[in-house]
Design a binder for these strands. Structure first.
Lengths: 214, 214
DNA sequence: GGGATTATCCAGCGGTCGTTGGATTAAAGG
DNA sequence: CCTTTAATCCAACGACCGCTGGATAATCCC
């Protein structure tokens, strides 16, 4: 959106430095964590100087936060679009709601499989409870509520009492993250692993709140 | 087992320094991670000097590994005892196997709820795929195999084909870790949260591989 | 009691960290 | 063309890091 700014760009017409730094930092932070990555590492990975990193993104902590905001807003964007489609199926009856539920979860799994650094950053954030609370409210709560609404529409009314829906949704989310971690630890493409996990997820959704009676 | 060794203990007859250091280091590493904890932090938390930490546990990396070994061997000890009890129920029929499965998982959940640092260390280890593989084989594989055997005994023979059992077990483990993380982020006792999670786990086990026909 | 042994601390070494001041260069604006 | 502005790098500062050599004191063994 902002046209070429003045300055002294070494590289002729690559991506803007801001993007380069953010991408390099995201990859490094996801792989090693905040404290194991030095600003000099980020600078070297981006092909610039330390002072340039500081010039663009300020403090190391600010750079860290910028990486999170970038990754999580991409996730939210995808999930909000899928949630929009699912919302339309809510009033159409249990069968449509269940199918919309499957679609929403599939979008979630696809996204995380394609971008494992998202899972890595989420796990690292979960390990910092004090900083995590706000992020959890901003990003996770709407997704959770959306899935819970679909569960309620797909299942009978009484089915939502005993296994509390937020526990169900949270466990599903963690199962997906565990799947991504297991995929990343593998050597091959993991195509079979992906298929098996999808079979599990569908069985999970259908089994916990069966559309018919229990 | 080894009686009081010679030396110059400042504290009169407390726990041995080795234990103090290891406990302090485990708490700090679980909370902040390897790189965010300095050996001086550990020494200060244990009330000793940096050199004393080095004298007892060697390198910082060795101290880290010692913390892992201590926590994970405690976990394995508890789970192996529970697995021993479950193994006896294997041949007694589907109903007994299912109850043994519930018991084994309950022991697992109880243990992690009481020792949240175990979950924190596991998650941190999962984020280091290269170092994680060996530990995964030594500690997790036997547990996974045990649960899969119980699943096979509790369900029909064909039920184990579609949702691959190792995916089922792994997802269950991650759900438990997610539960512990959510508990740690809470303010109160979380008694209701624990109850709801147990209800979810039992429903999970019963629903995925129902004892009768599907 | 008197070496031998062990645990503990103090002081410091070399290195890396995050951050910054200032010089240098290129584009933008008139 | 010349001033202004923005982007980049170099060099360095102070702080902290992991680790260790050596001094000191308490216990053990005989």
């Amino acid at each position: 959106m902002p046209r070429r700014r003045p300055g002294r760009p070494r590289r002729d017409d690559q991506r803007p430095t801001h993007e380069l730094v953010l991408a390099a930092a995201t990859a490094l932070f996801a792989e090693r964590g905040f404290d194991a990555v030095s600003v000099r590492d980020v600078a070297a990975a981006a092909g610039v100087d330390v002072a340039t990193v500081a010039h663009h993104t300020g403090t190391k902590a600010q750079l860290y936060d910028a990486c999170f905001a970038r990754v999580f807003s991409a996730e939210r964007e995808v999930l909000e679009a899928a949630g929009q489609r699912a919302a339309e199926a809510l009033a159409a009856g249990p069968a449509q709601a269940l199918r919309a539920l499957h679609e929403l979860v599939d979008v979630f799994v696809d996204f995380l499989e394609d971008r494992p650094e998202t899972t890595a950053l989420w796990l690292r954030r979960w390990l910092e409870p004090q900083r995590h609370a706000e992020l959890d409210q901003r990003y996770s709560a709407p997704l959770y509520a959306q899935v819970e609404r679909l569960l309620a529409a797909a299942a009978g009314a009484g089915a939502l009492v005993e296994p509390a829906p937020h526990v169900t949704v949270r466990s599903l989310v963690w199962a997906v993250h565990g799947h991504v971690v297991a995929l990343a630890a593998r050597s091959g493409s993991g195509a079979r692993e992906r298929r098996e996990f999808r079979a599990f997820v569908h069985r999970f959704l259908d089994g916990l709140y069966p559309p018919a009676a229990s």
